[in-house]
């Protein structure tokens, strides 16, 4: 269980997170949604111990420290791969540093996504580098796999393959926390949605509940954020003088 209790973070005058509280258990696939600057990345970095924060974050009752941090993994678009190392080198490095490194899964994923094994990662396309990020996060052997907009450099079919492969690979003790703007795409993939707005957790709801209410995730999210669908028409009407 990963527990986030009253977590707040301030950058100077900006309150990036305020009193965020929720917990995530094994085998959940949780979507984290919010506008740019709403605090998604700040929340993830707090969980990972990459920055200071106010409040409490516990992993099975223990604070996240060097001794249990390998139970968390992180894929982002910041390219944490070693640019001069090849995919094969990464495998050796991860196997050495993470006792629970999932080698079989790594071999399968690099093969499936046709990652060149013997070229330095830095020489490969952004798309492939992003795929490597996700593959490493999935193979580290972590139970809590955090992903921050991991699929931005992917093409559509690639993303679909990743969603499917992840669903097929996940063990019961693995949990995904995925921050993304691709709300419509991940609707079926996740089982729970966390909605962040201006640093506050404004909703925490299962997709089953959303579905039972007869609405789609994207419409639910838009409603929660007070999206005004008529604004586009109004703005265009002001320019074009078209009031019809």
């Amino acid at each position: 269980m990963l527990e986030i209790q009253k977590v707040s973070k301030r950058y100077g005058a900006v309150q990036a997170l305020s009193d965020v509280t929720f917990s995530v258990g094994p085998s959940e696939v949780v979507g984290l949604f919010g506008e740019n600057g709403s605090g998604k990345t700040t929340l993830m970095k707090s969980i990972l111990g990459l920055q200071s924060f106010k409040g409490i974050i516990l992993l099975d009752g223990q604070p996240v420290t060097r001794s249990n941090a390998n139970r968390l993994s992180f894929a982002s678009t910041e390219h944490s791969c070693f640019p001069f190392l090849t995919a094969a080198d990464h495998e050796a490095y991860y196997a050495k540093h993470f006792p629970k490194f999932r080698r079989e899964r790594y071999v399968m994923l690099t093969k499936f996504f046709e990652i060149p094994l013997n070229r330095p990662i830095g020489n490969l396309s952004y798309g492939i580098q992003s795929q490597m990020e996700v593959i490493l996060a999935l193979c580290q052997g972590a139970e809590y796999i955090l992903m921050d907009e991991p699929f931005v450099n992917y093409d559509l079919l690639n993303r679909e393959d990743f969603y499917k492969i992840i669903l097929g690979l996940l063990e019961p003790d693995e949990t995904i926390l995925l921050s993304t703007h691709l709300i419509e795409e991940v609707e079926g993939f996740i089982n729970r949605a966390l909605l962040i707005h201006e640093g506050k957790l404004v909703d925490d709801i299962s997709t089953e509940t959303i579905e039972a209410s007869g609405t789609s995730l994207i419409d639910y999210v838009k409603k929660t954020y007070g999206y005004q669908s008529d604004r586009v028409g109004q703005a265009l009407a002001e320019i074009t003088g078209d009031i019809g």
């Binding site: 085998s27 679909e160 499917k164 492969i165 669903l167």
Partner: peptide, 14 residues
């Protein structure tokens, strides 16, 4: 269940 979840790209709960 797992295979179907993967094939359809939908959550195992569904």
């Amino acid at each position: 269940r797992r295979m179907l979840s993967a094939l359809l790209g939908i959550n195992p709960n569904t």
